[in-house]
């Protein structure tokens, strides 16, 4: 063991009573201080890379993405459980989206259809589907799905980067980390900090700057759970209209969404 580590452990032991004290008070509530050397800064190169990726994404008229994901779930006890799954996206801008999402450990095997007019969720396990009338773009759809129906489609960022919904100004720190490979493809690895999340992205290092991996740390949540997605892209898929249209399979039943109803809220929205 090096002296450096001995020192660190020594400091930890000395500081234990203070840590215990602070755990009961508000010191524990304060965001963790940055490590020495982690100067808060925004490297222009990192923001440029993000913008170039967004601009490239917006040149795509149609694409499919296969996302291998893993996600921490924090139990009330504080224990973390790793959920894994696959999400397949097929999309044709601006108003067609099809998502298949399987999450192991969560009994989740869902299909989502957006055909430009309506949005349908279908569970392969429960054989139920529910529909709502949808707006005219994927971006608006994803907002409504989440805000009104609590249906969260992962990786909404893919449809926000490079658009007016891009929240690049939320970034408080941005760094280039290194070059590395994702499934053999050379990538540039960047790290960003926001008020609510820290995130990292691996962007393909060539003339098709696609995001190949995204890691999001929810740092305001207890346990700071992470979501990790590794993506495989096809930017020239053959997708027909029927891809996006839901046809109820045999034995499927139509049910409703449990929208949290508030008469005042509904009247102001209408």
């Amino acid at each position: 063991m090096t002296n450096r580590w001995r020192n660190r452990i020594g400091m930890l032991l000395v500081s234990t009573p203070f840590l215990m004290l602070s755990a009961t008070g508000c010191l524990a509530a304060k965001p963790t201080a940055a490590e020495p050397g982690d100067e808060i800064q925004i490297e222009p190169e990192a923001m440029t890379a993000l913008n170039e990726m967004g601009n490239y994404l917006r040149t795509l008229k149609s694409f499919t993405v296969s996302s291998e994901m893993s996600m921490d779930e924090v139990l009330l006890s504080g224990q973390k459980i790793l959920l894994t799954g696959t999400t397949e996206y097929s999309t044709r801008l601006p108003d067609r989206l099809r998502v298949s999402s399987k999450v192991e450990g969560l009994d989740r095997d869902n299909e989502y259809y957006y055909d430009g007019k309506s949005f349908t969720i279908y569970s392969n396990l429960d054989k139920y589907y529910a529909t709502f009338e949808a707006p005219d773009t994927i971006g608006k759809l994803l907002d409504i799905a989440e805000d009104r129906y609590d249906v969260e489609i992962p990786l909404r960022d893919l449809f926000y980067w490079g658009t007016e919904k891009d929240r690049g100004e939320d970034v408080q720190a941005a760094y280039f980390i290194d070059t590395s490979r994702i499934n053999g493809t050379p990538c540039k690895h960047y790290a960003f900090r926001q008020e609510d999340v820290d995130w990292q992205i691996w962007i393909e290092d060539d003339d098709t700057p696609l995001p190949l991996r995204l890691v999001i740390t929810s740092k305001l949540e207890i346990g700071a759970p992470q979501y990790i997605s590794t993506m495989t892209w096809n930017v020239a898929p053959q997708l027909t209209d029927s891809t996006f249209v839901f046809t109820p399979p045999e034995g499927a039943h139509k049910i409703e969404f449990a929208v949290i109803d508030d008469p005042e809220e509904e009247s102001t929205q209408q």
Partner: peptide
């Protein structure tokens, strides 16, 4: 009651974020 830290520093939704973009920002 105990300390004047910005509210959002402790708000927990009990949910792992799957997008960098927050909702409700449209």
């Amino acid at each position: 009651a105990t300390c004047a830290i910005p509210l959002e520093a402790r708000t927990t939704e009990g949910r792992t974020r799957t997008s960098v973009h927050q909702k409700n920002r449209a």
